[in-house]
């Protein structure tokens, strides 16, 4: 297992490098000018000098390798130094965001907590809701619980979050006035009342994402349980005189979780990428919001770096899913 994991990790390195090249070149070739958002009164020569000062005068390959070196070494070390206080930050230039002039790494560090809280909680609640619903739906197949659950998950899965989000705002903020429609990042939890406010402002984005994720995962869970409920080993477990709870929640669930856990693991990168829209609706200034804003103003270093981070996460969690599969299913031995 360990050697398999190491082999897969080694194989992931060229994959990530190829992705980085594609991400860099695609954005480099894209139309759009970092100086386009500057006032029109700036003369053309000055614009050209601005471009050169941004490093755009160098050949594309030189810029790629410089960017790669800064993304993989300089920025992470700076971020680590900032988090731990160790003196490991290297000298030399950092990747600067063209719009804000501050290092990309610092912006990302500011943005990640909001995304993790809001979107991560949405995913977590989604899983917590989905697993029991899937189990009960499958165990009581075609009961009213199953019918309602299947209908709701079909709706939840097919209606996009930008629609449910707006409906939620309309109902809970505009009509009922219970919840704030915008997420205030500067809010600090100090005491009970500020905690209540935090819960209120995080409730809607989390609910929207939880509904969407739960719809998806509960369908997987249900299908996987149904696959297993009719297996011969379930009859054996009953023939041994085990209670229904043990049969379903130990024997069947343990088998059904194998594909579901890997689906959940593969879905974790979408916590970051898929939330771009939800973050926009509720004005959560997370990572997705940073990406969208950077795209608006052709802030290529920012876009390149965030996209590349997403790519690394996807490769990494695919690897984790494969390893989990091997851990959960004793029949699979990679070595």
């Amino acid at each position: 297992m360990l050697s398999y994991t190491l082999r897969r990790l080694a194989f992931a390195v060229p994959t990530v490098l190829v992705i980085s090249l594609i991400v860099f070149l695609m954005l480099d070739m894209a139309p759009g000018d970092p100086t386009a958002s500057l006032p029109l009164t700036i003369p053309l020569e000055v614009r050209e000098q601005i471009r050169i000062s941004l490093g755009l005068g160098e050949p594309v390959l030189v810029r790629y390798f410089k960017w790669l070196q800064m993304t993989l070494v300089t920025e992470p070390l700076h971020v680590l130094a900032g988090l731990t206080g160790w003196d490991i930050a290297p000298d030399g230039p950092r990747i600067l965001s063209w719009q804000t002039r501050s290092p990309v790494g610092d912006i990302i560090v500011q943005r990640v907590p909001q995304t993790l809280w809001v979107v991560g909680l949405g995913y977590l609640f989604g899983i917590l809701i989905a697993v029991p619903i899937g189990v009960i739906s499958a165990y009581r197949q075609y009961s009213w619980f199953d019918q309602v659950g299947t209908f709701v998950s079909m709706v939840g899965f097919s209606v996009p979050t930008f629609f449910t989000g707006v409906v939620f705002i309309l109902v809970f903020s505009v009509w009922l006035g219970w919840l704030p429609s915008m997420y205030d990042t500067t809010h600090v939890v100090r005491d009970w009342s500020s905690f209540v406010f935090q819960v209120k402002q995080i409730a809607m984005p989390v609910a929207v994402l939880a509904l969407f994720n739960a719809s998806q995962i509960s369908r997987f869970m249900r299908a996987s349980m149904l696959d297993n409920l009719n297996q011969d080993y379930v009859r054996t477990a009953r023939a041994k005189g085990l209670g229904e709870q043990t049969v379903v929640l130990l024997h069947v669930l343990r088998n059904s979780m194998i594909p579901v856990v890997t689906v959940i693991a593969i879905g974790i990168p979408t916590v970051f990428t898929g939330a771009i829209i939800t973050e926009q609706i509720f004005r959560v200034n997370g990572l997705g919001d940073a990406l969208i804003r950077a795209i608006y103003v052709s802030d290529w270093p920012m876009v390149q770096t965030i996209t590349f981070i997403f790519a690394i996460l996807i490769v990494l969690f695919n690897l984790i899913a494969d390893v989990l599969y091997g851990i959960l299913d004793p029949r699979i031995r990679y070595d």
């Binding site: 297996q231 011969d232 080993y233 009859r235 054996t236 004793p330 029949r331």
Partner: peptide
């Protein structure tokens, strides 16, 4: 009452 079933390949739980 004890039971033995037809197909031993599928009658045991694979993950235990």
């Amino acid at each position: 009452i004890g039971f033995v079933f037809q197909d031993p390949m599928t009658s045991l739980n694979p993950v235990f």
